[in-house]
Simulated scan of single mutants.
Amino acid sequence: MIIFGTRGVTTTHEKGVFHCPSCGPGSGFRWRRVRRFFTLYFIPVIPLDLVGEFIECNQCKRTYDLRVLEYNPASEALKLEGEFHKTLRQVMLASIPATLRLDRPALVRLMELHESLGHPGVDIGRWERDAADFASSGGSLFTSLKELGGAVSDHGRETLVEAGYAAAASFNHLESAHLGDLAGALGMTPSHYHGLMKTLETAGRLPLPAESPALPA
């Protein structure tokens, strides 16, 4: 009697070094391929279709999608930093009165304030593009802030709120509850938010009123 069938056979296509999400950089990997074979008497004889591919870490033995080889921590960090600074500029744009026209003098004022707070300088053209993006988004940042809030540290959240406060103070817009909403969207607790306001007041970094805008409970 002739015994035949099919079964999967796993082979190593390539070896190298990658940044393992569990073990970190410099981890060895094997690029594994699973191919179906026609078997005769349980022996793989004829290769058939490719069933799947995956990356296996030599150290922790965990497996990952092939896209893990494209992961570059330094590049990802730069991308996140760029997104953070763009969000910071848009927070400043969102913190001034909605009735104010975002013309060049207003943007120059924000640009100078932004640099005075110690943030990387960008030219007026970038501010104009950011203002256009902000206007096209409908003037709401809260969805993107909630997404960003989980990716930044407490210091990053404080930096965004401070920038928003500085912009609001510069345009005499501190009566707005916007800053409380901003802090809430970033995931700051009421105690964290009010503690930040007190710290800024004590340090004399911002012209705070006697009572800071309330954070929604």
Rank of each mutant, 00 (worst) to 15 (best):
A166N: 01
R30K: 09
P190V: 02
L100V: 07
R7Q: 10
A177N: 12
A132H: 01
L208T: 06
G16H: 06
F171S: 12
C20N: 05
F54Y: 15
S27C: 05
S144N: 14
F42M: 06
A98T: 05
Y71R: 12
F134I: 11
L107A: 01
D65Y: 04
V34W: 03
N58K: 01
W31D: 04
P213M: 05
C20I: 08
L50V: 12
K61G: 10
S212I: 00
R104P: 10
A217M: 11
Y165P: 14
V34Y: 09
E83A: 11
R36D: 09
S144F: 11
Y41D: 11
I96N: 04
E112R: 12
E83N: 08
G16S: 01
H194C: 07
A135M: 12
K79P: 00
A94C: 08
S75N: 10
D65Q: 08
L110G: 02
T39R: 06
S212Q: 10
K198N: 10
W127I: 01
M111W: 11
R157S: 01
T10G: 13
T189V: 06
L50G: 06
H173M: 13
F84D: 01
E128T: 05
G204E: 11
R104M: 12
A203V: 02
V51W: 05
K61P: 14
S22I: 04
P213I: 06
N172S: 12
G138I: 01
F134Y: 14
G82M: 11
A185C: 03
G118W: 04
I43P: 04
G156V: 02
L186H: 06
M1T: 09
L174I: 15
N72Q: 14
L148R: 11
L179N: 04
G184M: 11
A217K: 02
T12M: 08
V45D: 00
A166I: 05
G121S: 09
G125V: 14
Q90G: 04
